[in-house]
Design a protein around this nucleic acid. Structure first.
Lengths: 121, 121
DNA sequence: TCCATACCTGCGTATATATGCAGATTAATG
DNA sequence: CATTAATCTGCATATATACGCAGGTATGGA
């Protein structure tokens, strides 16, 4: 019998897990399929140790699953819909100092969901 | 020119702000309109000091706005759509040990969105 | 003006998270 | 079997958050 308190705790845990810039970018990176640790690290221009450290809690909470192939570990989103759900949140970003709000949101959404260009890392 | 890194930082900040059980319940509480601090505290069965402490960062990041009427401060969601967006996340909650997943999600969603019954506080 | 109510803020302590670095594991390769 | 590559884990430190409690501010009423 799950009480609302229990649900709020689980929800908060999920959000806390997502509430880190690196991890958000990692999830976006995995949006279109599995990738190994080194690839993720290269895409985000971060040391692979750091990616590993971020993957640990994501794995523990089953947000990602991994598949080992030789010495490479390929990770994928357990629930890919989470990535789309995160994109929805872009419209809630701080509205201060936006001249044309809807245009701004559209620009941010495109930036976020585009294939990783080196200039946006 | 917002880079993806900047966006990920802002997103993470937003998520961190939401990533607390009390604050999630407060947002759900404000879903259907404004409420003053004492009412929120009563609904969640928490000391009003704590509600105030949670409201401070939410206010600072413009997730809520307040209106003062006499000595009461009525708070409301600046972007009510956030509450609905949070409800969407219920389906991402840990799937472990669910016998009938869709029924479970439905049950959780109803519990979460129902008018606060004393038994679920 | 004095008091009570409704909130807010500051402070100290406890706990959690982030992150660089060193070292351990595991698997392919020579 | 030694070496290297890919990844994971442990540790220490820095920083951030949470939360009870004390004290402060503002408003309305006696």
């Amino acid at each position: 019998m799950p009480s609302r308190i229990v649900v709020s705790r689980e929800l908060a845990e999920l959000l806390k897990l997502l509430a880190h810039p690196d991890r958000l970018r990692m999830i976006e990176e995995l949006r279109h399929g599995e990738k190994d640790v080194t690839s993720i690290a290269a895409a985000l221009d971060l040391p692979s140790t750091r990616i590993s450290q971020h993957l640990a809690p994501l794995r523990a909470h089953r947000l990602v699953e991994d598949r080992r192939e030789g010495r490479n570990h390929f990770y994928r989103l357990t629930q890919p819909a989470i990535a789309a759900w995160i994109v929805e949140a872009l419209e809630f970003l701080d509205v201060r100092s936006r001249l044309d709000e809807s245009a701004h949101i559209e620009r941010v959404r495109e930036l976020w969901t585009a294939d990783t260009p080196a200039s946006s890392r």
